[in-house]
Amino acid sequence: MKILEEYAGALTNFEVLDFLRSKVNGKDPKTQLSPSEFKVYDYLEQTAASVQTRDIVNKFINECKSYDLAPAEILNIINIRPASEVEVYTIIEDCENRSGIDTEKLVETVVQVLPAPPTEMEHDEGAAANEEEAVANEEETADKDQNEVTA
């Protein structure tokens, strides 16, 4: 094995997820994800990448040009989607001493351009709603049974 180019380009989480999705939904139904690929797919579906699209990411990169950010920092922001200033501080190196960055504005652009990831709360609520439905159904059937008995 020979490594021709160690660094042939960075990928955002979204691009990897997009690649795996296209592999699943490709023309050939025989191609399947290997177990390890599926784990990656599973992890990425829970991150902010799951709701991003190519247009959104491109738009965000264009918006970022007005800030003095390194490419790696833009990549990290797209992957993490920081929704508050304190989260931005961790990603951007030496944030306080860099003049070109207005963190407040940056957070605003992030929140505006990048969609919020599906939170666990929503999942839980959905599950709870389903449970409630199930309970309601059970009650209905129980009522029916009772009715039958009384009849």
Binding site: L4, E6, Y7, L11
Partner: peptide, 10 residues
């Protein structure tokens, strides 16, 4: 987190 690398393998 992810990146591409080009490899040659026989």
């Amino acid at each position: 987190m992810f990146r591409l690398s080009e490899i040659e393998h026989t």
